[in-house]
Design a protein around this nucleic acid. Structure first.
Lengths: 116, 116
DNA sequence: TTATCATATGAATGGTTGTTCATATGAAAG
DNA sequence: CTTTCATATGAACAACCATTCATATGATAA
């Protein structure tokens, strides 16, 4: 079938073990959320305490609109939650998974730098 | 200074604790690598065993060129390594961090689904 | 109700990035 | 040396995405 050299043995093995396309896509979509500097900074900010939109915007030196758009992305993915207090809406981390995933990334970065 | 309501207290606290811009960018760049379906599939394939470029291409039903481009990205980030055997070049996972980071993502996905 | 403050949102834009196509490299076999 | 096989690479194109601008929503205060 293939015009290249044979590797049917490996292909069969990998095909049996690899997760479904859907699962891999969902996983890629999750990591994509952490793969933007602005979103990463927002998440780091929320590590310390809940914050309102304009506080995040001021802190990051960015437009309220830009932050609001990104918060929507994070909220749609259930990474952050929000609560209203008067006119202000406070955002916070939805759970501790965010911390754990980011910490893993950090460990990789640090060990890679030590390795050099 | 700000035309909005005051949040200087929170800003000071967050500013003290948040990592440097450079570190956050590096972290975002790392997660970006996992945020593409093709790269994620390549990494999952290499979980099982080392593979040559054309085996991965055949397995994923994609062009050799597309895979080669992505392997370069992964190799530049030290997530995969390669070795030559005759005409063939085999790629493999550089270390176990890749597995750990991906497993963390999986855990989050699974727990999120249970939560619903 | 009207004005104001905090946030949300739609459309447009600019920049990034994954894939393709054509071609180049480089090792091994003849 | 020449051909072939496996992989790499550069340029071009298309799709995606983050930001901006203008405006809308929605709650509160007057």
């Amino acid at each position: 079938m293939s015009r290249t050299h044979d590797h049917s043995g490996i292909l069969k093995k990998v095909k049996d073990e690899i997760p479904s396309d859907e699962l891999i896509c969902d996983l890629a979509d999750l990591f994509k959320l952490f793969g933007d500097t602005t979103r990463a900074k927002i998440l780091f900010s929320l590590f310390e305490s809940e914050m309102c939109v304009c506080a995040i915007a001021e802190f990051l030196g960015m437009t309220q609109s830009a932050i609001s758009h990104q918060l929507k992305v994070l909220r749609d993915a259930n990474l952050v939650g929000s609560r209203r207090e008067g006119k202000t809406i406070y955002y916070f981390l939805a759970d501790d998974h965010v911390r754990i995933i980011i910490d893993m990334g950090f460990e990789h970065l640090i060990e890679e730098r030590e390795g050099r």
